[in-house]
Design a protein around this nucleic acid. Structure first.
Lengths: 275, 275
DNA sequence: TTGCTCCTCACGTCACGTGAGGTGGC
DNA sequence: TTGCTCCTCACGTCACGTGAGGTGGC
């Protein structure tokens, strides 16, 4: 008549629950030994506890907390409550699935951007090119101050135009020279369609021929690339025009500052052919 | 030239991070105050820290741990590593989505079963009925012993036949009387198609007319319902035949033992019309 | 004095896992 | 003695939150 008793080690193997977990479940009063030896303190479990353990394992697999399991096991009287608990748990899990989907989508976008950026870094040839630009619909905010203030312009534009933005941000420079303090420039974004926003100039930027050079590295070293492209312009006897442009192909991302050594900036100097 | 400094309370409002969280991030060295007053210990944050905070918030929203964020922020040198981290995180999240889907599907199945069981409880009329049964393909294991041993028969059948099972388990009783110790009965399941398994009798159970009564409550009170249905059979002058049947419409579930007061068992007594 | 903001330090959460130190019988 | 199984007790995890007790200036 004596039922087979398992020591905690044996019962652990039978149920797949660790010894520590079994002791923990006893403490939480959801799976208690059938008998505890008074002298040694050894725990013994009988057959019926295997069923109980299986139930707990199942509930844990369905993400019920120990507390919830405790309640469910105790009030196994009202099945309506159990059904309600199941439905609620399912709702929780579906909620998490939705959130996870959003997160995954977000990660996807960032991954795509970063991948594209890396591709750009690896592809870029770093030679002066003579190329032709299409006219482009754009939005800009004209600013006076330090070059580094353009970031504020970009975020203002991004807030105002959001999803209408169609490409990388760029700047137009209206000074013929380098100005440290009160430069005259315009922070810009290409646009998908014509929209208007307060304080923003929306217009079509003329295309035409430009001398182009992709600068790789931090912004404070743009000077070297300017030297190179200007030397080239002189050799080619080109007559440069204002405003000049800088397209920020890859800079600090929204999430990651990135390594400034890998920033990519395209310098574009519009020109009309000289003699 | 002094940049605006925020006290921890102000910075908390600006960033949406709690004061406690800001102190915690400092401890973890991922978002340190720009200045700490030597005398009061007050923390002060400048503008650039807002950006930093935003980055951290974004990474946390994408489920990166503080430890991971710490690494990402420190080695912002190699963007390849960051990209790898992003991909890995995405894989993790998709993994969790898959697991959650499984859990949700599992919950769904259990919810459906429980709902069905409750519907049965609420619908059952508890009156003796005279009804006709179709012949049925079934698998059974003949047993001798206590009635309560039938559970072993059911689990053996379930293991052997699994997805071929087509409905609720039932028992056939070959004794004309109640036997406590060495009853002769058969644990059965209806089958979808004819299959064979060792130690299992697969055959078609004849149909015909039966007197039926649904018993609500624990198994040890089946006696009352038997009394009722037998009284009825006598009144109707029916000649009862063996084996009789018990169909376990709702008993202890796989996950939940359920409340025995709500168990439903259909007693079926086959008969040939009397005089 | 009250109210506000800031500080530090200690402890709690959740479901266990880790490890130290010890027992009992082969 | 070594090896095995069992025991208890204390502490760690993770990203903070809670609360106690105190400061400093209006």
């Amino acid at each position: 008549m004596e039922p087979t008793l398992f020591s905690i080690g044996e019962f652990s193997k039978v149920t797949g629950l660790s010894v520590k977990t079994l002791r923990f479940y006893q403490e939480k009063d959801i799976l208690t030994p059938s008998r505890i030896d008074g002298e040694s303190g050894y725990r013994y479990y009988d057959q019926t506890k295997i069923e109980q353990a299986r139930i707990i394992v199942n509930l844990r697999a369905m993400e019920f907390s120990i507390e919830e399991i405790s309640v469910i096991l105790k009030e196994c009287g009202d099945e309506r409550d159990v059904l309600a608990a199941l439905r609620q748990k399912k709702a929780q899990i579906e909620q998490r699935i939705r959130r996870d989907r959003d997160v995954a989508a977000c990660l996807d976008r960032i991954i795509a951007k970063e991948t594209e950026a890396q591709r750009l870094v690896e592809q870029s040839a770093f030679a002066v090119e003579n190329k032709s630009l299409e006219p482009m619909l754009m939005a800009g905010i004209r600013m006076k101050g330090k070059y580094s203030d353009c970031g504020k312009g970009f975020s203002q534009l991004a807030r105002a135009l959001g999803r209408h933005i169609a490409g990388k941000c760029f700047c137009l420079y209206y000074d013929g020279e380098f100005r440290d303090e009160d430069a005259d420039f315009e922070a810009c974004f290409p646009l998908r369609k014509e929209v208007s926003a307060e304080g923003v100039s929306v217009r079509t930027l003329t295309g035409g021929r430009v001398l182009s050079l992709i600068h790789k590295g931090p912004y404070d070293q743009l000077g070297r690339s300017y030297a190179k492209i200007l030397r080239d312009a002189k050799e080619r006897k080109l007559e440069l025009q204002l405003p000049t442009r800088e397209v920020y192909l890859k800079g600090p991302g929204m999430i990651f500052k990135g390594n400034a050594k890998n920033y990519l900036t395209e310098i574009q100097l519009p020109f009309t052919a000289g003699t």
